[in-house]
């Protein structure tokens, strides 16, 4: 199972910004108890969706060679609750990025309404002990493909973001074992 809190990328500019959407649906079980009689998308999961939008943007910048972890939430302001039927539009912009980590600013909108304003930092771990399966680049590439990044992704020169070589082979392997 994958812990994915965005549905699809709409825009993806390498090293710069990404836009993703999350459709809030009453079919999601967690909304049945949050809150009883008043389903509300938890702001913590909106933050997670934003972190995934920004985290994949940051990870892709270094070709997923670095292990990107959410390290600091500098700001998180929520203006109204998101409810079933809403489409949340997350936009993450990289403010700073270097070998050690990255800082992003992000917003969530429902239609034209500003739902959330978030600032967060990601750290690049280089401890080899944390090189578990979850941090393997192929996992990220698989997730990016699932989320449509290669349909909308653009490099700084405007050319299309392409799937890294080797992914085709990986897919064959996954199908074979799947």
């Amino acid at each position: 199972m994958r812990w994915i809190w965005i549905d699809r990328f709409l825009e993806f500019e390498t090293g710069k910004r990404a836009v993703a959407i999350k459709n809030v649906s009453l079919a999601e079980e967690h909304l049945h108890d949050h809150f009883p009689g008043r389903p509300t998308m938890p702001n913590s999961l909106i933050t997670e969706g934003i972190a995934q939008t920004g985290g994949l943007l940051v990870g892709e910048y270094h070709s997923f060679e670095k292990k990107v972890v959410l390290a600091k939430l500098s700001k998180a302001v929520f203006h109204f609750p998101a409810i079933p039927g809403d489409t949340l539009r997350y936009e993450a912009v990289i403010n700073d990025i270097n070998d050690t980590g990255a800082a992003i600013t992000a917003t969530a909108h429902v239609g034209d309404r500003l739902q959330a304003e978030v600032e967060m930092m990601f750290a690049h771990l280089d401890d080899p002990q944390t090189s578990q399966n979850n941090f393997e680049p192929k996992n990220f590439v698989f997730t990016l493909k699932l989320l449509g990044v290669f349909e909308v992704g653009r490099k700084p020169d405007g050319s299309r973001l392409t799937e890294p070589p080797g992914l085709v082979n990986l897919e064959r392997v996954l199908k074979a074992i799947g």
Partner: peptide
């Protein structure tokens, strides 16, 4: 410790300087 990176990014912007790792 993560705040040090935040501080570095903000110092770089505020003073228009580059700070290496």
């Amino acid at each position: 410790s993560i705040d040090m990176l935040d501080i570095v990014f903000r110092l770089e912007k505020s003073f228009d300087i580059k700070i290496s790792r």
